[in-house]
Amino acid sequence: MNEVTHTSPKTGDHEPIVRLDKVNKHFGKLHVMQDIDLEVAPGEVVVIVGASGSGKSTLIRCVNGLEEFQGGRIVVDGNELLPNGKSGKTLQTIRTEVGMVFQQFNLFPHLSVLDNVTLAPMKVRNWPRDKALDTAHKLLARVGIEDQAEKYPSQLSGGQQQRVALARALAMEPRLMLFDEPTSALDPEMIGEVLDAMRELANDGMTMMIVTHEMGFAREVADRVIFVHGGRIVEQGPPHEVFDHPRHERTQSFLSRVLKH
């Protein structure tokens, strides 16, 4: 079944948009995801924190199939991903509905900003050029870079590039957005502009899964904070609970290290 409608009749609004059941992943000997259970409700903003190497990036990369997993199941908007990369066409269906913003932006350097944003809607959704351009201009305006539309990525600052990457993902009208350390490669003075754009997106009701080290942002925007350690979800809850009253010793020591800075 290829569901491309935006209010999926299969899931409805009470069903989680993402569900992970006992998901396991190994990198050789490393057990990077151990029995991960996780549900994300429509409109929910989930921030995943943890030390580097804890498996948090791997977790969200499994959701759109950029990483394979070996056991368990992942259901995204009613479409089930199969272990060991056996999902076939479903994978593309899921990716069409799930946007992603990467740490390194990954804009297409040979295409103008506008072409970066219109490529997928035209090639995947088969939108006519006019519609794709119209949407692109609106999105670029929304992230505050409409005057850079004709430029190439290399002519933009890091913060601008990341906002283009956000617009590019949003152009596909995704039901879910994944953010893999979206501000980690940015100069400090540019982090704010990207977080602002993300905050606005969250306020508009987008379902978001965010891996970040920006604890202030997490506290403010997250509906739920998930702390990952050693490939497991160690603790989760509303930000004020996890940040102010962490129950688990691992969470406490992690937070005491990152919150000092």
Partner: peptide, 17 residues
């Protein structure tokens, strides 16, 4: 870079596209 392909795939492009 690997990220270019990943960015394309994450937008729903097929491998060929």
């Amino acid at each position: 870079e690997k990220g270019q392909r990943e960015a394309g795939l994450s937008l729903g492009l097929s491998r060929t596209q």
